[in-house]
Amino acid sequence: MLTYLARRLVLALITTWAITVVTFIIMQLPPGDFVDAYVSQSSAMGSSISAAEADAMRQAYGLNQPFYIQYLKWMSFVARGELGLSFEYGRPVTEVIGDRLWLTIILSIGAILVTWGLALPIGIYSAVRQYSFGDYVFTFVGFIGLAIPNFLLALIIMYVGFRYFGLNVGGLFSAEYALAPWSFAKVWDLMEHLPIPVFILALAGTAQLVRIMRANLLDELRRPYVMTARARGLPEYRVILKYPVRAALNPFASTIGYLLPFMVSGSVIISVVLSLPTVGPLLLRSLLSQDMLLGSSIILLLGILTVIGTLLSDMLLMWIDPRIRLGRDT
């Protein structure tokens, strides 16, 4: 068990390092650099910047140094927790990301919980009552859910919420709290705004997880141990919940790994539509303006979230599956 944990931790560290390299390469990939973007932006607005000025800027930001030097410089800052200045905002990256990260995490966890709360029971129902009317209804609704782009769903729900229920849609805060310091009232305001975005984000994953759960459980229901449990005289609900559902949760746990970053990156468009102050839209803007330090910090953050998520799901698997815990496979 300890070897398993140790191996996972070492792998996680190596992966994290690899992510920093890849992140850096990605940021270098687009032609030109921030200064080019800045120059073209300025000339579009009417003021021109001379080549000498541009070179001076490159000098100041260290953009003309070789690739590996830039990487090492960046890494030495990152290691100290300093992610540098955002070119575009002219403020430290940590400050720009700041609260957005926490809001993103709160939103994601809320969405994951709602996803599971919906997908687990529906999946179990659909598998146990395979080909029943209810199963067909959930399958139909599920496929429609998969087919409709989520931002469209977000728009529809926003419209309906605003038009017919007078709900406060868009954003996570009312205007008077948006820039206010944290207070009890602000937290309450956040709670009031959370349900709609959480629900929309959750719907994105629910249909998919229902299909996964249904398929997993259908596989498990045919196993002999289900029949033996039944032959022991257990009531049907206990047979199902204790044995096959438990086994079907296994692949479920391993999906957490990519659920975490998916909630951040996959929700960019939804976040833009709902004008949520989360990390997603920030990433989009930083990429558009080639704000290298901000963009690479977010990509790095996403990578690390993936690693943490995978590590968490590994530990969860270890907890629920004795075969892994005891280091054996059958």
């Binding site: 002999p224 449990a229 599956d321 075969r323």
Partner: peptide, 19 residues
């Protein structure tokens, strides 16, 4: 079931829950 009639299956490998 189980109380008055007990059943033993063919597959000892998969007839018990691994969990």
């Amino acid at each position: 079931r189980g109380g008055e009639i007990g059943l033993v299956f063919q597959e000892p490998m998969s007839s018990l829950s691994a969990f």
